[in-house]
C-alpha cells in the first residue's frame, strides 16, 4: 500500500508527516531551552569576571566613566600599578602566599595518612570518625575564630602568619581528608597486594604504587586548600592585625578607596584562583565524579 517504509499504516501520508514535524519541533524547543538556560548561567557567572578584568586594565578615568566598556580602550597598567604600589599591598600579598602555602602543607601532610586510613582500613568507629570529620566542617567559622583568637593571644601566637595558617589548615582539613580518601579508594587494592607479593613492605607499597597514582588527586585537593586560604577573610581579620593577608588588607582599605583600587584588587585576588582551577579542573571533575559514586 505505502511505498515508503517507516510509515504507520493507520495514518495518511500527510497526517504522518505533520505529526513527525510537530514532534521534531518540540524536540528542538526542548534543546533550545536547555541551551538558553546554560548560556544565561554562564553569562551570570562570567560577566562580573570579565568586567573586573577589563576595568583593571583601563585608565582610572575610564573606570569611573559610565557606561563601562567590555574591552578596555586604551589598555593601561596605571590602575594595577596604583593598586600594587599602595602601602601594605605587597607585604599582604607575601603574607597571603606564606599562609596559603603553609596551610596547604599542613593540611596535606595530615590528610594523606588520615585519608589512607579511612580508605583502606576497616576499623571500629570508622563511620563515626568520618562523620566527625564532616561535622567539623559544619562548625561555623565565627564560632571557631573568636575563642581561637583568645587562645592564640594567651599562647603568644596572635597576629602571626603561621597561626593563621593553622586556622586555615583546620578549616580545609575535613574536605581534604575526605577528598584524599576518595582518591585512595579509587586506587584498586589489588595493586597494593601485587606490590606486597612482589617484595614490598606496606610502606613501600604505599610509596611506590598508591602515592604515584594518587598524586594528581592529592595535588588538586592541595590546590583547593591554597585557593580557600587565599580567599579567606573572616579568620584572617580576627587573628591578625599587623600581618594582614591580602583579602584582609583589601577589605580593611576598601571603604577608604576609589573604584580603580577595588577593581584592581578584585582582579588581583581572582587571578590565582582562576589559574589554579584552570590547571586542576580535569582532576576536580574526575574526583567529584568518584565522590558521587
Amino acid at each position: 500500500m505505502n511505498q515508503t517504509t517507516g510509515v504507520i499504516t493507520s495514518l495518511s501520508q500527510q497526517e504522518f508527516q505533520a505529526q513527525h514535524r510537530r514532534s521534531r519541533m518540540r524536540h528542538t524547543m526542548r534543546r533550545g531551552g536547555i541551551y538558553l538556560l546554560a548560556i544565561g548561567l554562564a553569562v551570570w557567572i562570567l560577566l562580573p569576571i570579565v568586567l573586573i578584568g577589563s576595568m583593571a586594565f583601563s585608565t582610572p578615568a575610564d573606570v569611573r566613566a559610565f557606561p563601562k566598556q567590555i574591552i578596555p580602550d586604551p589598555i593601561s597598567g596605571e590602575t594595577m600599578n596604583f593598586f600594587l604600589n599602595t602601602e601594605g599591598i605587597l607585604r599582604a600579598t607575601g603574607n597571603s602566599i606564606v599562609v596559603a602555602v603553609l596551610a596547604l602543607l599542613i593540611s596535606t601532610v595530615l590528610a594523606v595518612p588520615a585519608g589512607y586510613a579511612i580508605a583502606r582500613y576497616l576499623f571500629r568507629g570508622r563511620d563515626l570518625i568520618r562523620l566527625g570529620i564532616l561535622s567539623v566542617r559544619a562548625f561555623p567559622i565565627v564560632v571557631l575564630a573568636v575563642p581561637l583568637a583568645v587562645v592564640f593571644i594567651q599562647l603568644g601566637m596572635f597576629d602571626q602568619v603561621y597561626s593563621l595558617a593553622l586556622m586555615h589548615a583546620a578549616l580545609t582539613l575535613p574536605t581534604t581528608i575526605l577528598v584524599v580518601a576518595s582518591v585512595f579508594t579509587s586506587v584498586p587494592y589489588e595493586l597494593e597486594e601485587a606490590a606486597l607479593v612482589f617484595g614490598c613492605t606496606r610502606l613501600q607499597a604505599f610509596w611506590r604504587i598508591v602515592l604515584p597514582l594518587s598524586i594528581p588527586g592529592i595535588a588538586a585537593s592541595a590546590i583547593l586548600t591554597f585557593v580557600l586560604s587565599w580567599n579567606e577573610v573572616f579568620a584572617a581579620i580576627l587573628l591578625t592585625i599587623t600581618n594582614r593577608t591580602l583579602p584582609a588588607q583589601i577589605l580593611y582599605t576598601l571603604d577608604k578607596s576609589g573604584d580603580p583600587f577595588k577593581f584592581a584588587g578584585g582582579f588581583f585576588m581572582l587571578v590565582p584562583s582562576l589559574i589554579f582551577i584552570f590547571f586542576i579542573r580535569r582532576y576536580l571533575f574526575s574526583m567529584w565524579g568518584q565522590l558521587n559514586k
Binding site: 584498586p188 589489588e190 607479593v197 597514582l213
Partner: peptide, 20 residues
C-alpha cells in the same frame, strides 16, 4: 609471614599491573 618473605609469585584476577 608477610607475602614478600614467602618466595611466592602471583597472577591476580584483574591483572593488577601498575598503570604508571
Amino acid at each position: 609471614l608477610p607475602p614478600k618473605e614467602r618466595k611466592i609469585s602471583m597472577v591476580f584476577q584483574n591483572y593488577a599491573i601498575f598503570p604508571h
